[in-house]
């Protein structure tokens, strides 16, 4: 078992950050914790990396208990906190060398593991970490978290503030690391990244909404979603929200995602209604739900 979390709760003063969280991550799995800021993701990461103690519940990481066996966990996990946490005044190479040393290893010893990533930042190895671009920093942080060949890798919002190109590269790297047998727990507020994980947990306000594979989660969506478009998006949203059969209306990129409360919904009815509201160029078509649709339906 990679990670096992059982009935974990955690409060800060009056705020309940985590409420009775349970889930399991199999060894070698790429597991995503998907939820907005303030959902409790970082608190959960800190409990699992032995930095915080939960008020209730138990958890194990790589089969070590997070409280009684915390020393063993610290030897066998890699952790990349949400905020860029490397020494800005040290160069790329010095940072990597430092983390290798405190984990009692050397860059050469585990070079295999980081090679793919390191070659991309190697041209800048004498540059101070503080002067790197966002994507480069993130790659360096990943190298530092991997340098001791951890069994479990914790990545707290690794792609926040990083551009799409670097994000794509980052996820490709995670896939390759997974193939080397590393269990990965990654958190992200971006729903579109969920599809890249083996399994995901949707989390909001300290509670898990659902745990499953991204495909299954999407399949469980209870309704047919329609993409609706018209000449004026704002008027369209207003009209849909006041439609008596409206189940949900959410702007979704260039469309509005609409679900109807009736089982025998006929799009033509809706077209007529929207036309009565003086909207034109109306398009309605069926579409498949996304993780984000599911999240909103569950969080409703």
């Amino acid at each position: 078992m990679g990670i096992s979390v059982s009935h974990i709760s955690k409060s800060y003063k009056a705020v309940k950050a985590l409420k009775d969280i349970s889930f399991e991550v199999k060894a070698g799995e790429l597991f995503g914790l998907i939820g907005p800021d303030g959902a409790g993701k970082t608190t959960l990461f800190r409990i699992l990396t032995t930095l915080l103690i939960a008020n209730e519940g138990t958890a194990t990481v790589a089969n070590f208990d997070v409280i009684s066996d915390y020393k063993n966990i610290r030897k066998s996990v890699g952790y990349m906190p949400g905020k860029f946490s490397l020494y800005q005044d040290l160069t790329v190479e010095e940072n990597l060398d430092f983390f290798a040393t405190i984990f009692g290893t050397t860059i050469e010893e585990n070079y295999d593991l980081i090679k793919d990533i390191y070659v991309q930042i190697a041209p800048f190895k004498d540059r101070r970490a503080g002067k790197l671009s966002g994507g480069m920093k993130q790659k360096l942080a990943l190298c530092c978290a991997l340098i001791h060949k951890p069994k479990v890798l914790f990545l707290d919002e690794p792609t926040t503030g990083v551009d799409p190109v670097s994000r794509k590269e980052f996820w490709d790297m995670l896939k390759r690391l997974q193939q080397k047998g590393i269990t990965i727990l990654v958190s992200t507020p971006y729903m579109d990244e969920a599809a890249l994980c083996d399994r995901i947990a949707l989390i909001q306000d300290g509670k898990i909404l659902e745990i499953d594979t991204p495909q299954a989660i999407v399949k469980h969506y209870p309704k047919q979603i329609y993409n609706v478009r018209a000449n004026n998006t704002y008027q369209l949203i207003k009209a849909l929200n006041t439609y008596k059969h409206n189940h949900s209306t959410y702007p979704f990129g260039e469309f509005v995602h609409y679900t109807d409360s009736r089982l025998n919904f006929n799009p033509d009815d809706l077209v007529r209604y929207l036309e009565s509201k003086k909207l034109s160029n109306i398009e309605i078509e069926k579409t498949n739900p996304t993780i984000e649709d599911t999240f909103m339906e569950l969080a409703k």
């Binding site: 800190r46 930095l51 610290r74 906190p81 946490s85 405190i102 978290a145």
Partner: peptide, 13 residues
């Protein structure tokens, strides 16, 4: 402040 203490804590040092 930098957050590096977090990483140092989660290490065998």
């Amino acid at each position: 402040e930098l957050g590096t203490m977090e990483i140092l804590l989660v290490s065998p040092i």
